[in-house]
Design a protein around this nucleic acid. Structure first.
Lengths: 221, 221
DNA sequence: CGACAGCTTGATAAGGATCAAGTAGCGTGG
DNA sequence: CCACGCTACTTGATCCTTATCAAGCTGTCG
């Protein structure tokens, strides 16, 4: 089965499923550039679109009444964010670095999902992956020491960036703290301690070399 | 559209979607009784079935290498658990109290989901609800004080049990602790403190009366 | 060079974990 | 019916991790 929607100003093929599975699909998407620290949408905004990251890093987060922030996830190249069950966005999305994203209209898509097995399966698999990530994050937040949180964070981003030995951190210490449920000072101190222990090296603040992956993994299960 | 699968020994209509939406559907389900504290499936077991709670309470949880346990969720009457993206269960499921559940074969269902819009939509909505719950749980685990965690827990269960003023706790203090990322002593102390503050009453260990919902809500956002 | 933002480090405090005793409730058996 | 033993829960004392407050450092940009 093949479906095409009306073509918008910027027409971009749907690139976030294995090409073999959704060859026939095309969705109208609008390319957007967002400067670092700019908001893409706010908590409570109507969820008209969902997004795919082309370049840069995006964070989805919520704010507490006391002003603190919890970052739910960082979204990197190729990842989809902002797809909601209800009418509104439950979290805000903000650019961690300068970003390029594609905004897809949500309207119509939900019907399409159930008209084509392949697209439906992809979406379902996406949803299940989100659940697993959220649960993994819960586990970390609920039961990890600062060292466990930091080491899990570094290993996760090393994997996602594809580089096995060096992690380029797009996000600030504050972002890391808000993702892991720590303070900026504890993040800094823990990184320093890991460096003193010879587990990592910090050639610069935003660059981490993983020197002893075994030790890093050893902190967790 | 209406679909019927081969009828198993115990044939039970699929009851976990609004009746109006999946009237035509029937799935073969096997009714199971599980004694309190018995395991329904283990972490890593092949995910042949998913389950619906008929009565009692079920917990889904994971064990860490140091022996500690993180409870991901409690599942109550009418709720579905054990539906996985991959081939295996990522968490164990155990009976908190004596339970009755219905086990549905997973095989065949995934195809059905994409053959009928209504069933598909229900499943998708179920998945999205799971994501929101997992994120809510992350927020609580990452940023809450003991009092915030306990009050959020009580309000959540008051809502789910339908009773607005008294919560009947099926689970032990240890279960609560493992759900909230606390120790059993802190759970106990926090409940005692809330009682001293006149926010709740504890007529018995497993029964909590919510005396001041405003104060309970006040701990959180 | 100075100003600024982001990061690091130090000193201290608070919240929760841990270790250690109790106490209450409940089923069992006498 | 009560004594017993068991388990779950509560409470107390102390320790440890991390938060908080405060200061200094580093790199960048004008």
């Amino acid at each position: 089965m093949s479906v095409s929607l009306s073509v918008a100003a910027n027409h971009v093929p749907l690139p976030w499923a294995p090409p073999a599975e959704v060859d026939g699909f095309e969705l109208s998407g609008v390319v957007m550039h967002i400067a670092a620290e700019r908001q893409i949408y706010a908590e409570g905004d109507e969820a008209r679109c969902f997004y795919k990251v082309v370049s840069g890093v995006v964070r989805t987060c919520r704010f507490l009444n006391d002003g603190r922030r919890q970052i739910d996830a960082f979204h990197m190249e190729g990842e989809v964010f902002g797809f909601e069950a209800g009418a509104d966005h439950r979290m805000a999305a903000e650019a961690v670095s300068d970003c390029t994203v594609i905004a897809y209209r949500r309207r119509g898509l939900e019907t399409m999902v159930f008209q084509d097995d392949r697209l439906g399966r992809w979406f379902f698999s996406h949803a299940m992956t989100c659940i697993e990530q959220a649960r993994e994050h819960s586990l970390l937040l609920g039961r990890g020491s600062a060292a466990q949180k930091i080491s899990a964070f570094l290993l996760e981003f090393a994997r996602r960036e594809g580089c096995e030995c060096t992690v380029e951190l797009a996000m600030s210490r504050q972002d890391i703290a808000d993702y892991l449920g720590l303070t900026i000072e504890t993040v800094s101190r823990t990184l320093s301690q890991l460096e003193r222990d010879g587990v990592i090296a910090l050639p610069s603040a935003r660059r981490v070399a993983l020197k002893d992956r075994r030790a890093l993994k050893g902190f967790n299960a």
